[in-house]
Design a protein around this nucleic acid. Structure first.
Lengths: 218, 218
DNA sequence: CCCACAATTAACCAGCCGGTTAATTGTGGC
DNA sequence: GCCACAATTAACCGGCTGGTTAATTGTGGG
């Protein structure tokens, strides 16, 4: 009576009741809300409204606000796993690659930021998966090092951490980026300047001062 | 009747009513609470309890929770101004210096993190002061560059931003530091490894590939 | 000594928010 | 068609929280 055949003209069918679709809608809206306001600041009613879903469905599908949050975070992390695992071995390329991951997906960074500020000291969600993931990247870097692309004796873990830091920081602290450079980190001019700088830096870090030279420091 | 001369033995006097002291207590407790839980997560009642002060005093002294938050942030920023302004010109020293600022004061970083996640896009508190502050550091770096300590043509703003990123990131994202290195960024072993790496990196960045050499790339 | 006022307190409140109850309605199997 | 059950909804609730009211009490000036 209310929705007789609303959109049956379009797809083969558009059932009024579709739990999978409801879950998808909730997850999408929840990511936006949690990314924007964090676990404490997010409002279930806002998520429900954005998802065009009854608020009760959040609890019907995910049990609690916390449960929904955990699921959102888990999925966000999982969605990047493949990309992270295939970090390029070349330092300069890795920097550029990570900058793209970082600056390109604001939610990705913000969720990590909320996690960092959260009550639990360490990563509570998908811990083992993430450990495995980062271990694989470390192995990849070690391989690059043994091939001579990276200076021997350098601390690969610290190097990798620095790659992440250099690429993610502007998006993580846009107000600082703005104070220092006068531009928003989303500004194309900023992006270009940053990319150029990271290029230079990557070359500087990779070129060996004593061993084989990959040369061209700028 | 209740507190006749409670501690008059100690100091010259310890008046039961002392607004300045009350303000100080509130600010100290508020910094701890806001740093830990952020603006949305902080509870005025918790702040009052930690400050051993009646909750009403928060509003009596600072008007509102937001007002208190702004004041806390303003003071935290002001307390670091002098230290930031005297950033060393030498790159390696600057890295070490900033790492100390960053890793040494957890609240400092966490307040910036909350600010980054907050609803306002840019820095709303003490904006002009902070602009001036960073401008002075930029001028300082430019002087270092003109003296030849830094490669000509390099983007100083991006360089400075990177110094901050490299030094602050582990404390800002301890869970990532932990995932990558297996150690908490507060762990002395981590601190040592990080310092050594930053030393190496500072030398790499400062030494000129074509112009005058400050040499010893480790 | 006492008063005016500043500092402090207990008690209270309205609104919000995560979560629940119970009723309703669409749907797929028969 | 119709039933059993899954999906969805409206309405509700208790507890918490920022903020307020109004009363109380210490203190410094006269």
């Amino acid at each position: 009576m209310k929705h007789p055949l609303k959109r049956s003209i379009n797809g083969p069918r558009d059932p009024a009741r579709n739990l999978a679709r409801t879950r998808r809608r909730i997850l999408r809206a929840a990511l936006a809300e949690f990314s924007a306001r964090g676990m404490a600041g997010a409002r279930t009613e806002t998520i429900a409204r954005r998802a065009r879903v009854n608020k009760r469905m959040l609890f019907y599908c995910f049990g609690s606000k916390r449960g929904l949050y955990a699921e959102v975070l888990r999925r966000k992390i999982a969605s990047k796993a493949a990309a992270i695992a295939s970090t390029p071995e070349d330092l300069g390329a890795a920097l550029k690659y990570w900058a793209e991951i970082g600056a390109g997906d604001r939610d990705w960074i913000r969720m990590h930021e909320w996690e960092a500020l959260g009550p639990s000291a360490g990563p509570a969600v998908a811990l083992t998966d993430r450990r495995k993931l980062f271990r694989s990247v470390r192995a990849r870097l070690r391989r690059a090092q043994s091939k001579g692309a990276l200076e021997r004796g350098i601390n690969l873990e610290q190097l990798f951490l620095s790659v992440i830091a250099l690429s993610a920081f502007p998006a993580a602290f846009p107000q600082i980026a703005r104070l220092v450079t006068g531009m928003a980190p989303t500004d194309p001019r900023f992006r270009r300047a940053r990319a150029k700088f990271l290029d230079w830096l990557g070359a500087r870090m990779a070129s060996s001062g004593q061993g084989r030279a990959r040369g061209r420091a700028r």
